[in-house]
Amino acid sequence: MNKSDLIDAMAADAGISKAAAKAALESLTENVTKTLKKGDKVALVGWGTWSISKRAARTGRNPQTGKSIQIAAKNVVKFKAGAGLSDAVN
């Protein structure tokens, strides 16, 4: 399912227009992004939790040349599924 399919499904399930469903989905993604950027967690009880984890700088290897390269430190997004979501897919 891609973003367009999700918008169509949301509109049909909620009985709203596709424009309203698109606005709701974009609002959700923007607010999750803003919250994670601040370093906070986003938790939807029963569905899951998004959080930020810091990945340290490290030395890697270019597989084409075999030379060592420095990989910069960065923040990565983690998602942990909640019990409701895990039960629903199993």
Score class of each variant (00 low, 15 high):
residue 65 T to D: 10
residue 21 A to M: 06
residue 11 A to Q: 00
residue 51 S to D: 13
residue 39 G to S: 02
residue 31 N to T: 09
residue 16 I to C: 01
residue 16 I to S: 00
residue 46 G to L: 00
residue 67 K to I: 13
residue 38 K to Q: 15
residue 40 D to W: 05
residue 77 V to I: 11
residue 86 S to M: 13
residue 52 I to W: 05
residue 2 N to Y: 08
residue 19 A to C: 01
residue 30 E to V: 12
residue 64 Q to N: 15
residue 27 S to I: 08
residue 41 K to L: 04
residue 87 D to R: 09
residue 74 K to D: 06
residue 12 A to I: 10
residue 73 A to K: 08
residue 3 K to M: 03
residue 90 N to Y: 05
residue 40 D to Q: 06
residue 13 D to T: 10
residue 13 D to H: 11
residue 2 N to T: 07
residue 64 Q to P: 08
residue 86 S to V: 14
residue 24 A to W: 00
residue 3 K to G: 02
residue 76 V to H: 10
residue 12 A to W: 06
residue 15 G to P: 00
residue 26 E to F: 03
residue 73 A to Q: 07
residue 25 L to M: 05
residue 22 K to H: 04
residue 62 N to E: 09
residue 31 N to G: 03
residue 22 K to R: 11
residue 23 A to W: 01
residue 84 G to W: 07
residue 73 A to S: 12
residue 84 G to T: 05
residue 30 E to M: 14
residue 81 A to V: 01
residue 75 N to R: 10
residue 39 G to A: 04
residue 4 S to Q: 13
residue 43 A to N: 14
residue 38 K to R: 14
residue 11 A to S: 01
residue 68 S to C: 11
residue 74 K to E: 04
residue 25 L to V: 03
residue 31 N to L: 07
residue 61 R to C: 06
residue 13 D to Q: 15
residue 81 A to Y: 00
residue 27 S to A: 15
residue 56 A to P: 11
residue 47 W to L: 15
residue 5 D to V: 04
residue 21 A to S: 09
residue 53 S to F: 09
residue 9 A to Q: 13
residue 26 E to M: 07
residue 39 G to D: 02
residue 20 A to Q: 12
residue 58 R to P: 00
residue 5 D to H: 05
residue 37 K to S: 15
residue 50 W to G: 08
residue 68 S to W: 10
residue 5 D to F: 03
residue 75 N to M: 06
residue 45 V to C: 11
residue 72 A to I: 05
residue 33 T to C: 07
residue 46 G to M: 01
residue 62 N to L: 10
residue 77 V to K: 07
residue 50 W to Q: 08
residue 10 M to I: 09
residue 56 A to D: 14
residue 90 N to E: 12
residue 59 T to Q: 15
residue 48 G to E: 07
residue 69 I to R: 04
residue 46 G to R: 01
residue 63 P to F: 04
residue 28 L to D: 05
residue 32 V to L: 03
residue 49 T to S: 09
residue 32 V to I: 13
residue 81 A to S: 02
residue 83 A to Y: 13
residue 77 V to A: 08
residue 18 K to A: 01
residue 68 S to T: 15
residue 69 I to C: 06
residue 71 I to D: 02
residue 51 S to A: 13
residue 64 Q to H: 14
residue 83 A to F: 14
residue 63 P to A: 03
residue 66 G to L: 04
residue 42 V to L: 07
residue 15 G to I: 00
residue 76 V to M: 12
residue 51 S to V: 06
residue 9 A to F: 07
residue 67 K to Q: 15
residue 80 K to G: 06
residue 22 K to C: 00
residue 2 N to A: 08
residue 82 G to K: 02
residue 78 K to M: 10
residue 18 K to T: 00
residue 14 A to I: 03
residue 9 A to R: 12
residue 29 T to E: 10
residue 90 N to T: 11
residue 20 A to K: 09
residue 1 M to G: 13
residue 76 V to I: 12
